[in-house]
Simulated scan of single mutants.
Amino acid sequence: MNPMLKWIGGATAAAVFVFGGATLASSYLSTDNKPVEKVTLEEAIPVDPAKVTGETVQGAPGQGQAAMQQANAQADDQFTVKRILPIEGPIKYGEWFWDDKDVPDGPIVMTVDLQARVISVFKGGYEIGTAAVLLGTDEYPTPLGTFPILYKMKDNVSEKYGNSPMPYSMFLTKDGVALHGADVEKGFASHGCVGLPTPFAAKIFAVAGKGDKVIITDGEMMGLGDQIL
Rank of each mutant, 00 (worst) to 15 (best):
Ala189Leu: 04
Ile204Arg: 07
Asp218Arg: 15
Asp175Ser: 12
Ser120Glu: 12
Asn72Leu: 07
Phe171Gln: 04
Asp218Val: 03
Pro197Leu: 02
Gly20Pro: 01
Val118Asp: 06
Glu139Phe: 11
Ile128Lys: 08
Ser164Arg: 12
Lys186Val: 05
Thr56Ile: 13
Pro90Arg: 09
Ala13Arg: 12
Phe200Tyr: 15
His180Leu: 01
Pro49His: 12
Gln115Ile: 13
Pro167Ala: 02
Phe205Glu: 00
Val16Trp: 15
Ala67Phe: 09
Arg83Asn: 03
Trp98Arg: 03
Val52Ser: 05
Phe188Asn: 01
Phe17Val: 12
Met170Ser: 06
Gly192Gln: 05
Gln69Asp: 10
Lys203Arg: 12
Pro107Ser: 07
Gln115Thr: 13
Glu43Asn: 13
Gln115Trp: 14
Asp48Pro: 07
Tyr93Phe: 10
Val36Phe: 14
Gly219Lys: 15
Lys51Pro: 00
Ser164Asn: 08
Lys210Tyr: 11
Phe205Lys: 01
Lys6Ser: 14
Ile45His: 13
Val109Thr: 11
Asn72Ser: 04
Pro141Ile: 03
Val157Tyr: 10
Lys82Gln: 03
Gln227Ile: 10
Ala202Leu: 07
Ser26Cys: 10
Gly219Met: 14
Ile108Lys: 07
Gly211Gln: 08
Thr12Arg: 15
Gly54Met: 06
Ala25Lys: 01
Gly181Lys: 03
Asp105Pro: 05
Ala116His: 07
Gly195Trp: 09
Gly9Thr: 07
Gln70Cys: 01
Ala131Lys: 13
Gly89Lys: 12
Ala25Thr: 09
Ile45Lys: 15
Pro90Leu: 04
Met110His: 10
Asp76Arg: 13
Met222Ala: 14
Asp76Phe: 09
Val81Trp: 00
Ala178Ile: 00
Gly64Val: 10
Glu42Ala: 07
Asn33Lys: 15
Gly54Gln: 08
Arg83Lys: 09
Cys193Leu: 06
Thr142Gly: 03
Gln70Asp: 14
Leu114Phe: 13
Val118Phe: 08
Gln227Leu: 14
Ile87Glu: 06
Glu95Arg: 06
Gln78Cys: 03
Arg83Gly: 00
Asp226His: 09
Pro107Leu: 04
Ala71Pro: 01
Leu29Asp: 09
Thr198Asn: 06
Ile128Asn: 07
Tyr151His: 15
Leu85Ala: 03
Met166Arg: 05
Asp32Tyr: 11
Leu114Trp: 12
Ala60Val: 10
Leu24Glu: 03
Asp105Phe: 10
Met166Ile: 06
Ile204Leu: 15
Ile91Lys: 06
Phe79Trp: 13
Asn72Gln: 14
Val194Gly: 02
Pro107Lys: 10
Lys210Phe: 07
Ala116Cys: 08
Tyr28Phe: 04
Val36Ala: 09
Lys34Thr: 11
Phe200Ile: 02
Tyr151Ser: 03
Glu127His: 13
Ala71Asn: 10
Pro165Gly: 04
Thr198Gly: 02
Leu172Asp: 00
Val184Thr: 05
Pro107Trp: 08
Lys82Cys: 00
Asp175Thr: 13
Thr146Phe: 11
Asp218Trp: 14
Asn2Glu: 12
Ser26Asn: 05
Gly176Lys: 11
Met110Thr: 07
Thr53Pro: 05
Pro46Val: 06
Gly181Leu: 04
Leu5Asp: 01
Glu88Lys: 15
Pro143Met: 05
